[in-house]
Simulated assay, not measured.
Amino acid sequence: MMWLILAGAIVSEVTATLALRASEGLRKKVWIAPVAIAYAAAFGLLTLALSNGMPVGIAYGIWAASGVALTAVGARVFFGERLTVRMMIGIVLIAAGVFVIELSAGGH
Rank of each mutant, 00 (worst) to 15 (best):
Trp31Gly: 04
Val35Asp: 02
Ala41Phe: 15
Ala41Thr: 12
Ala49Cys: 08
Leu50Met: 05
Pro34Val: 03
Phe43Glu: 04
Val35Phe: 09
Ile37Cys: 06
Ala42Leu: 06
Pro34Gln: 06
Arg27Asn: 13
Ile32Lys: 10
Gly53His: 02
Met54Val: 02
Lys28Val: 14
Ala36Phe: 15
Ala33Pro: 13
Ile37Arg: 04
Leu50Gly: 00
Ala33Asp: 08
Pro55Ile: 05
Met54Glu: 01
Trp31Phe: 15
Leu50Pro: 02
Ala49Asn: 04
Pro55Leu: 03
Ala38Ile: 07
Lys28Ile: 12
Val35Gly: 03
Ile37Gln: 07
Leu45Gln: 01
Ala41Trp: 10
Leu50Tyr: 05
Trp31Cys: 10
Asn52Met: 10
Val30Pro: 00
Leu45Ala: 04
Gly44Pro: 08
Phe43Asp: 02
Ala42Cys: 07
Gly44Met: 09
Lys29Pro: 03
Ala40Gly: 15
Ser51Gly: 00
Pro55Met: 03
Thr47Arg: 06
Ile32Gly: 05
Ser51Ile: 09
Ile37Asn: 00
Asn52Gly: 02
Val30Gly: 11
Pro55Tyr: 01
Ser51Tyr: 12
Leu26His: 11
Ile32Asp: 06
Met54Asp: 00
Ser51Trp: 13
Thr47Leu: 12
Lys28Trp: 13
Met54Leu: 13
Thr47Phe: 14
Leu50His: 06
Gly44Glu: 08
Ala38Pro: 02
Ala41Gln: 09
Gly53Met: 03
Trp31Asp: 07
Ala42Ile: 01
Phe43Pro: 00
Pro55His: 10
Asn52Cys: 00
Arg27Thr: 15
Asn52Phe: 10
